[in-house]
Design a protein around this nucleic acid. Structure first.
Lengths: 222, 222
DNA sequence: CTCGTTGGCTAATCGTGATAGCTTTTAGCT
DNA sequence: AGCTAAAAGCTATCACGATTAGCCAACGAG
């Protein structure tokens, strides 16, 4: 019996492709092995188990998303960049639902976690988009979270069949981009009193390192 | 052996509570049965199976969310109503992570699906919030989807541990509310050409009934 | 050519969902 | 009070997926 010549990277790619076809939750070691023309236990010679597989797929997806958004926003700014990034993310979620599903719900296990590192890389293009608006540096983290929330929310709802009315989804998406664009322009002009910055609530287990009184944006997922 | 006196409603409630404790994906027939002091097969006398259980929990959660947002927004309008609704939803997602997880990822099977009906009921309070802004009636569906995307996205990211930086999450949330509030005010003033309304893209399987050229907002999940 | 490592296989364990068929409780009726 | 039928639990059992142990063949270095 000749060898199949598997590698962790091969398995991850095949798993991602299969997840896109049948859904992330339907991805099983047996099915993946069958797809690779191999028996299930053989996969364990290359990856540690299903959780490991899931994390590798998530890391791959994060990297791909970062690339997609990065290239889509090259040379654009303002609403153009915002729209390009939004479309790139949504297109990815719709074309690769399995991969996209892998990126949500997997808490990074620590600073060295490949998932965390890949997720961090995915933040870069979003920050670039925000640089096109007049946002105070200390508000950047808020704006980043807002961006992620908005576009993840839309992509997630659409990918999971959350939009059932006949109203055109693409048009709703454009409307949403306008909403955020206008919001960013308007909020940027706002002058809010300093005592609005409270820093009271803390997530248990979150990383709280600070330098010069500002959080270290070094790892984690924003 | 005396009877336990189970009912579909009892089982659903216990399942929701257990899901909140151990996580929705960890909810299992055996564990739920143990919690109820009964053997797993006994549950099948009242519910059809795990999928049925999941859907019942989702319907329950949708109803509870609708109630929470509805009461929170009573007598409020504009930014007040927006903030109240947003907080109500986020509080629910954080206090009842299991139930909240059940509400995402379950596509309604049809117009009569209890999940779809409950989800529809949950839209009411959101529409009420939007009435506080000057939004053209034909844009209401877009605004509704925008609202759902934004707050689902934030709640989902926070509930799944997506925010890892030290920046205060509550503050980011307030910032997001401001962003949307400003966006709604500004976009409402916008006058956009009619040909921007295209109605080209259609979701497969979606309900497309229309009356007077406008979609019937009768069922589905927006 | 030989040998150690590597990669795939079979067999087996364990946990979970689901179903079949049996038994007992319980409510209503005479 | 006793009878009866539906309802509600139980045991036994199967299917399937993840994972591990241990066997053996393929491959590359000397």
């Amino acid at each position: 019996m000749p060898r199949a010549g598997l590698h962790a990277h091969t398995i991850t790619a095949a798993g991602a492709a299969l997840a896109d076809e049948i859904g992330f939750t339907e991805l099983t070691m047996g099915r993946l092995a069958e797809r690779l023309g191999v028996r299930a236990p053989s996969l364990y010679k290359h990856i540690a188990g299903q959780d490991d597989l899931n994390r590798r797929i998530a890391a791959l997806a994060h990297a791909e998303i970062a690339d997609a958004i990065g290239t889509a926003t090259q040379g654009r700014a303002g609403r153009d960049a915002l729209a390009a990034a939004a479309h790139a993310l949504r297109d990815f979620a719709l074309t690769h639902p399995g991969r996209y599903a892998a990126t949500v719900g997997l808490t990074p296990t620590g600073p060295g976690d490949p998932v965390a590192i890949a997720a961090l890389r995915g933040l870069g293009p979003f920050e670039a988009v925000l640089r096109g608006y007049d946002i105070a540096p200390e508000k950047m983290a808020h704006a980043l979270r807002a961006l992620r929330s908005v576009f993840h929310g839309f992509a997630d709802l659409q990918a999971t069949g959350g939009f059932q009315w006949s109203t055109d989804v693409g048009e709703s998406f454009e409307w949403l981009i306008d909403l955020i664009d206008h919001g960013f322009r308007h909020t940027a002009e706002q002058v809010r009193p300093l005592d609005a910055v409270r820093f009271t609530e803390r997530l248990p287990g979150a990383d709280h390192r600070q330098v010069d009184g500002r959080p270290v944006l070094g790892h984690g997922v924003a």
